[in-house]
Design a protein around this nucleic acid. Structure first.
Lengths: 202, 202
DNA sequence: GTCTATAAGCCGATAGAC
DNA sequence: GTCTATCGGCTTATAGAC
């Protein structure tokens, strides 16, 4: 019944994520969000109360997928499979949720001023779990004694860069937009670097 | 003689790079820059004419070091040495120029709206040169046939992440600030991933 | 060259008619 | 629930005294 409400909220959220991704929180005007969503500006406030609130909802929409991507991580998994699966999930997020990914990156870059302590704790806990898992593999001699923190940082950076720095990637490759094959090549390259780097030395 | 002028410009520039890195262009107030630099706000305008101008000068200060980092790249170099040297240079930039690095990253993330076409051309030309160089190594069988574009993107992302996402790195490692040994470990981890990844398959 | 005091304009937010 | 019309605050930028 309230399909108009749901539809309008959805339109505004989508427009907001694009605008926030494109310009950043401070530089984004609610009037532009309203224009892009095709609704009058006061409706944005009617549905979301404030610009900051709307921003937080965009942020929230990306946290669940990010946490979800870590599910393959557990000590009993096969390292090569866990790492490959994780890298593919992260690349998929960059491909399928490019705007929210960028908003999240920008938020992190500026010290996460809008994340709740609970969200920070959740993300941080997840990261620590993944790193512990990698350390476990090292202790069991399943992979080379590579620094697990720096390995995680490299994986995050290499996968997120396809959303965060899409302008640079378009400029260098000459392609306005990457296609499925490009994302597949990206995933394979990162997987190769990580798996070869984790192979125990002979 | 004009040492006061030079000194004030330097103080303002340093304060500006920290503020812009911390908050982004739009969210940064010139009054905060002035306060951090210890000068009255009109002096900021006296020396730099406008907020945007000041921002552009911060941006400009990082472009030279970034271009400089690519000098090791040439077809006749030994791949392992060129790549190691490049990764170390990029990590050093993140360590020594963290604020300007972050400002640059933010600028790229939002589509480089403040870079001049000449700057874009310079950076892009440099990138293409590096990628051609890697392709040459592949053609000569010196390294494995890894996708050179994606390899560059991974190297950029993995090295820049130490400046761009320092908050995340501090949060996960539990260290407010990384020390020399941490940056060394980061460089070694990335070098290992890249060199092992580039080794021809047996 | 330096700084106080102020102008000018933009944007988030809302009152109130429909 | 929707939208027009407007307010109020905040920030860039400068006029003008020193």
């Amino acid at each position: 019944m309230s399909s108009i409400r749901e539809r309008n909220k959805e339109l505004i959220l989508r427009a907001a994520s694009e605008e926030f991704a494109d310009k950043g929180f401070a530089a984004t005007k609610t009037s532009d969000i309203a224009a892009k969503a095709g609704v009058p500006k006061p409706n944005v406030y009617y549905y979301f109360k404030s610009k900051e609130n709307l921003y937080r909802e965009v942020l929230e929409s990306i946290i669940e997928p990010i946490l979800q991507a870590s599910t393959p991580f557990n000590r009993d998994g096969v390292p090569a499979e866990v790492l490959s699966g994780y890298i593919r999930s992260k690349i998929r997020i960059s491909q399928e949720l490019p705007f929210a990914s960028k908003v999240f990156a920008s938020e992190i870059m500026h010290g996460a001023p809008h994340l709740t302590p609970e969200q920070v704790e959740q993300l941080n806990g997840q990261a620590k779990h993944n790193i512990d898992c990698i350390q476990g593999w090292i202790d069991n001699g399943l992979i080379a004694p590579i620094d697990p923190h720096h390995l995680m940082f490299s994986i995050w950076a290499a996968t997120q860069t396809y959303a965060d720095f899409d302008w640079q990637i378009s400029t260098v490759t000459g392609k306005p937009k990457l296609d499925d094959a490009d994302y597949e090549a990206a995933a394979q390259t990162i997987i190769r670097l990580v798996l070869k780097g984790c192979e125990p030395d002979r």
